[in-house]
Design a protein around this nucleic acid. Sequence first.
DNA 1: CGCAACATTGAGGACAGTCAATACCAGTGG
DNA 2: CCACTGGTATTGACTGTCCTCAATGTTGCG
Lengths: 236, 236
Amino acid sequence: MTLALHSETIETFEPVSPAAWSKAHDGVDDAASSFHAIGSVARFAQHETIFAEGDSADCVYKVLTGAVRLCKMLADGRRQITDFALPGDYFGFEMDREHAITAEALGQAIVLRCQRSRLERLERERQDVRTSLMHMLRRDLWAAQNHLLMLGRQTAKERVASFLLLMAQRRKPDGCKAIEVPMSRQDIADYLGLTIETVCRALSELKKTGVIAVPNRHQIVVRNLNVLKNMALGEE
Amino acid sequence: MTLALHSETIETFEPVSPAAWSKAHDGVDDAASSFHAIGSVARFAQHETIFAEGDSADCVYKVLTGAVRLCKMLADGRRQITDFALPGDYFGFEMDREHAITAEALGQAIVLRCQRSRLERLERERQDVRTSLMHMLRRDLWAAQNHLLMLGRQTAKERVASFLLLMAQRRKPDGCKAIEVPMSRQDIADYLGLTIETVCRALSELKKTGVIAVPNRHQIVVRNLNVLKNMALGEE
DNA sequence: CGCAACATTGAGGACAGTCAATACCAGTGG
DNA sequence: CCACTGGTATTGACTGTCCTCAATGTTGCG
């Protein structure tokens, strides 16, 4: 497919290809396949904006490959990442008229994009689609509440440990027990409400005490899960 | 009504009284009145638990009078308040099977309680009810995301200023420009991810600089809205 | 009046932030 | 293949904000 040749393409559309379809076909149910049926594939370059806070919320999305960061910014540039969307995750549902957050591709990202109007029609007709949508919103709210507890009441080390556990849960990849960490240290810091230096120091300490190993920037191996869990809860 | 005589009643039920109905009748629409039609009134004493994290999510609620805090706790007792439910607000929707948060009455609180099963039936039958529910979930998610930005990236003073602005927005009471603050300083601290002392100091400074006045513990008058807004954004 | 709960103020310390130097790595071109 | 370069990550030294601990004030209620 020709898309791969244009790494600088701003946005490209095409009908859903069977390849992309099956790639994202993990939590298969009828609602998901309906979503796929009415969507189109788009590719975004590293750090490209998929939508920005304040944009009219015309579309909703699903990550096929790559990863997306969802964030809010203060006027002076301070940034808080509210969530990461990984392959299989939907995002852009927090809409009403306007998006309340900004979505940016972490690396190269391929997403399925669906017109809001089409989704709404589906929503009216199909009970299962409605249930799925509710489910997603509830899951996002649940995640946000846990995130609030983390930012409000956990120490830096606890947050980093919790983050690793979260990523470990979300990615059960190919047998290998390395956690894939597609985001930069800065992104992790912005998710955890810390500075990049504090994140580094926490990771270094975990490395020094043998709790984790860091083969490269984007992979982390958990060597001692129990210790990590205890650290996340503040019991050293 | 006899309820008022029993301040220590654990939980009391009764059919919806016209008085309670009209009190909560602010954002009137058909969906809201349906909710009222299938609910029953319950009263909770100060600090009484309405439901706890992990409880099976049988019911959803609407505040009629008083206020409710929604919070999560860490094993060692650290607490984060994710939201306050004020008169007219719904809560308990973040359910699936189990509640993910704990709801406690701030003072005396009267709430409308509705069986989940009844609501679900209504949801199946009525388009407007579904829309309302979606709306509520989205609003909660939106609020949580703003809250995340606050906890992750704002300073103590900015958080306190933001909190006052939030409360000012939510309560447009009887002409009087005092903000009603039904929660204790500790509750504010737990909402803002701070200690009670830090909240006090921030309020004291705002008082000293004439930005606010504090006639009593549960009322705050904003004397200089613009300055407060600037402080919330970090521009001093 | 006196008590208990809540709120405020003060002094000192710790954790995370800031600033700065250095290390690492991927990609590029010699 | 290696040196160079820009971006990213790590480490160190120092600072400041917010937390901790403790004393004092305030309010509401029996």
